[in-house]
Nucleic acid binder design. Structure first.
Lengths: 242, 242
DNA sequence: ACGAATTTGTCCGTATGTATT
DNA sequence: CAATACATACGGACAAATTCG
């Protein structure tokens, strides 16, 4: 009877009706990403609601990257990217980070499982050109490491190039979202710097070497070693002094 | 026209700014999921913006499940679940489905890579009790199949139980999101029915049998076969008549 | 059981900034 | 540069939902 006010009931998500109607409108009219949506005034009339309700619905859809609002011009159909996933995971990780680093380790484990499985599949798909691109990226990493700097963008590009031959657009987006969360949170914590860039470079080189030899098992092992390195970096810090 | 020079120019994107400020407020005050947020009136005053701006920001955060709004009571810190991912992926898949089923196949491939890797890891972690639970679920599936019905909930529970010993909460949420997208879209297309439930049951039984024998390779093979079955189901339909 | 207080939901009107033409 | 169309923001008012005395 007297329910604790501090505990919200987990009721089924009612959601905004207007929100769903706008989504349905996009689907019904076969609008593609980039297409222009009706203006707020038109949506007011078509859906029979006020401007405020339309705006709140559009704001919610914008947060999901389902629509894209351009100030002074109009509203477009969005790309429905994984930006909301990255935003939500970042927030959740930061909230939980006050207690422990579990959320971060969970993300890392998912990345590891994904990439170990993926590297096996691309091992037989990669073209010579792609292998050359990967080797070039490793050389660039080496130069950056010799200069004493970090190379987050090169790392990102490496993994993106690695899985291009799959032809699966969801894969780089998903990995990119995880990568973003990890780096954003790491930046807040202060342990964004790679303590041993040269080791990281050789991990990447090992992966390419195994792939060049079409050594599926070796590529998976190299990828696993790569993640062991990342785990050691974050694990060492989480047990260190605050 | 006559803009006062000493007055600081108003921030460009107040909307997303308020959004970030609310998130920062949650982090600064160490609010946990379920905690009550300041009321809209209080946020207006604290952030120095109008109520509409506050509401639009809260609506956007609600779409990301970062806050949870209850009419007539208040606003809570949300769970930051993967509901936005499921919503976004569902929308993207539906939009693209007018052309092809590529988005759906991409999701399936990610699920497959994930589950093949995960089943290897749980093979050495599963307790006898969890194995018994899995066997019980397979028996229930068999009963449902004999009765001629489908068993989407049993399938979902099977995969959830399978990875419980990992202790990774992100894994079931991620797989659940993918599963939701797949089933929601499948429902729209009309090919939700499993044409051969008995085959699906035996795929699951094969997985449990291999796991009971602690046969890592066999478990992965069984999982791969399981997904071959799902691919065959959807692939056959996508090449069939409209 | 009922009403008051609180809080969110919706609407209207108006003024301003911004991009396109 | 001027005009236009559009999104952005503010303030006020009332309705609906929830809680609690």
């Amino acid at each position: 009877m007297c329910r604790m006010p501090q505990e919200p009931v987990r009721e089924r998500r009612v959601g905004s009706q207007v929100q769903r109607e706008v989504m349905q409108l996009i689907l019904d009219r076969r609008l593609r990403p980039g297409a222009l949506l009706p203006t707020e005034a038109e949506l007011m009339e078509e859906l029979g609601v006020s401007r405020n309700s339309v705006r709140e619905a559009l704001k919610a859809l914008q947060a999901l990257d389902i629509v894209e609002i351009r100030h002074g011009y109009g509203t477009y159909v969005g790309q429905a990217s994984l930006t909301p996933l990255a935003d939500g995971l970042t927030f959740r990780t930061l909230v939980q980070l006050a207690d422990d680093t579990r959320a971060l380790e969970e993300i890392l484990q998912v990345r590891e499982v994904l990439e170990e499985g993926l590297v096996r599949r691309v091992a037989v798909l990669l073209t010579d050109e792609e292998l050359s691109q990967l080797e070039a990226l490793v050389r660039k990493m080496e130069e950056a490491a010799d200069a004493g700097g970090a190379f987050p963008e090169l790392d990102r590009e490496f993994h993106e190039t690695l899985y291009r031959s799959l032809g699966n657009e969801l894969v780089p987006q998903l990995l990119g979202a995880f990568w973003n969360v990890f780096n954003r949170v790491a930046g807040v914590r202060g342990w964004a710097r790679d303590p041993a860039p040269d080791v990281t470079v050789s991990r990447h080189r090992d992966i390419v070497t195994a792939l060049r030899a079409r050594d599926v098992e070796g590529a998976q092992r190299a990828m696993a070693d790569h993640f062991r390195g990342i785990e050691a970096r974050s694990g060492q810090e989480s047990r260190g002094v605050g």
